[in-house]
Design a protein around this nucleic acid. Structure first.
Lengths: 209, 209
DNA sequence: GTCTATAAATGGATAGAC
DNA sequence: GTCTATCCATTTATAGAC
């Protein structure tokens, strides 16, 4: 029911048929997954004939890939901000942790991640793309940041790649694992700040020089 | 191609038709997921007519639910061992961490988890069951253990539920996150021991009284 | 229990008119 | 670009013989 993807330009003007199709497909794919969602259902939801869908998107696979790719890009926006420069590692990591948690706890994003994980065996390029833009990108950036802090002697991080992954696990774990299997977690967006702070505390306490 | 589920009783005797069906369905469901796998394919893989499949399992949903439930049970075996009593929290947590990593890095289990995540919107009871038997069970046990250690003054764990989840994230994160999206991780089963040790170190360093 | 054959429904994709 | 109507392949599930 949540529509993440909206055409940026001129949301005021009445939506074109294509927009309607994209919105409908977006909702249904995220809600049900690729296989279950039929082109009939998309056409119906978009209040458009099935032929119109096919005149805009040559196939179901193409439509799905197009939409998911676009959503990955949208998801990536905002993760490009630099990590620091900031006075203390505590501030930098806290900012990163909070950013991750904001992202992870958005309902739309949860559906997106779930759908990508679901279909990543059939559409590996989508999983890869999301990884590179989202968690993978964050992992690389934190890795580089930690490596630098280690070099400067501010932190003790002999294996920055592993530490970076552990940081991500520490931050995201509580909100993530249960959600994947049961659909809900003990912690919600309201707990995000506290979770972030606790994660950073734990991480820093064990990486002092 | 990996068959996790095998009938425990009399694996020596020649497999019954039912066994063949179960084995085939197991393979195909884990490999392709619920929707894509057809009853035709299962019958073919089991070298049995489709009618025979239906005489053993009343529907595709039933077959899937039955098999996944059974695999959850098998997965749960071994997680029931007690946490401790052991001299040091380090030993107990290390044992738990290694156990988790052994489980997580098994190829068969990865397929299982992936399939459960995929189908947990359609079959929520399966996701729930797996959670309760697997990660959720571990989470509860570690929570209780940490609560007790806090009470005894051995560790400082003001919020055992959160700490338990963080411990899981710390241990599983590196092997888990990338695998879900890209299908492979930078760390493999060979790194498991080191990952476990590092996770326990980090956790303990930040929970000293 | 097991098979071949088939029913009944659905889904992806297209034809051709407007 | 858009629509109605339709083709064709596939899929779940069942009938009835052995």
């Amino acid at each position: 029911m949540v529509n993440i993807l909206e055409t940026a330009e001129e949301t005021v003007a009445k939506p074109t048929k294509r927009d309607q199709i994209v919105a409908a497909a977006c909702d249904l794919f995220l809600e049900q997954g690729y296989e279950i969602t039929s082109m009939d259902a998309i056409a119906a939801e978009a209040k458009v004939s099935k032929r119109t869908v096919y005149s805009h998107f040559q196939s179901k696979q193409f439509l799905f890939s197009e939409i998911m790719g676009e959503m990955c890009e949208r998801f990536g926006d905002g993760t490009t901000a630099e990590l620091g420069p900031s006075p203390s590692p505590r501030e930098v990591l806290l900012q990163a942790a909070k950013f991750m948690l904001v992202r992870i706890t958005e309902p739309g994003i949860q559906s997106l991640m779930r759908t990508i994980i679901k279909e990543s065996t059939q559409f590996p390029e989508i999983g890869q793309r999301f990884w590179e833009i989202g968690p993978g990108h964050m992992w690389v950036r934190i890795t580089e940041y930690l490596r630098e802090q280690h070099r400067l002697g501010v932190l003790n991080v002999p294996d920055p790649e592993l530490s970076s992954a552990q940081f991500q696990g520490l931050v995201a774990g509580p909100h993530f694992l249960a959600t994947l299997f049961t659909g809900r977690s003990r912690w919600s967006a309201a707990d995000a700040d506290r979770t972030a702070e606790r994660a950073v505390e734990i991480f820093l306490a064990s990486h002092q020089p």
